[in-house]
Design a protein around this nucleic acid. Structure first.
Lengths: 119, 119
DNA sequence: CTTGATTCTGACATGCGTGTCAGGTTCTAG
DNA sequence: CTAGAACCTGACACGCATGTCAGAATCAAG
């Protein structure tokens, strides 16, 4: 599929898709004229990338991480190096803290919302 | 307490504390010479502000939200307006989605970390 | 062919909380 | 009184994914 369709299906702008490619997170074949041609699996990959961004990982980390993931097309994975594992473990801890923070904030909102509804 | 101590105790830079004040999220008495003097409750408030920032709320929303919260000093709260409640409800939904995303990303990391440890 | 939609590259702009620096004033211990 | 620490204001810079615009080339359908 081409970039317009991928953008529509993933809800990610064409701008961002080109950026992902430049960062090395997403690759595409090219038509003779130079237009990008994506495989079906690109949809899942882009969604994963978005999730990882939302989790606070930067492009660089994601670039390292992606080849180690079991891809949607079931492709065989690269083994993560020990240093990458250490890195990801730290990120994991960060994500845990982030989730805990979010839960607290959600509770805060609930309190205010509920207080407004009652007497 | 003064700004240096508050910064140390909350692990938030003096720069940010002054910014919070300018945005109307944090107030302080002033010494005759113009130095900020914070009450003990400021510590909790700053931590809350940080959590809400981490949850993706912008200053403006937090400004509206803060007076409706049951503060650490147990002060009485302002009632949230219906439009604010609608707003916060939307934020709450966003936070829920964010948590779900984070959990997925954490699972992704776990998969890669585990795969590197085994055979 | 022609035309309109789509895509291409490259460059500049934005948000927004935060870092940092400069030049000056206030506070506090000796 | 004095020195040094702490604080004041204001201004400029950054990160970094994303928005946006311009000008040109490609693609697909009539």
């Amino acid at each position: 599929m081409r970039i317009g369709e991928l953008a529509r299906r993933t809800n990610v702008s064409e701008r961002s898709l080109r950026y992902y490619e430049k960062q090395g997170m997403l690759s595409a074949e090219r038509t003779p004229g130079g237009h990008r041609e994506y495989p079906e699996a690109a949809v899942d990959r882009v969604i994963r990338i978005q999730e990882l961004f939302a989790a606070g990982l930067c492009s660089e980390k994601i670039v390292q991480l992606l080849p180690c993931m079991r891809d949607a097309d079931g492709g065989p994975s690269v083994r993560a190096t020990p240093s990458l594992v250490a890195n990801l473990t730290a990120e994991r801890a960060r994500i845990d803290r982030m989730i805990a923070d979010l839960v607290r904030s959600r509770d805060t909102l609930d309190e205010v919302i509920d207080a407004a509804r009652l007497p």
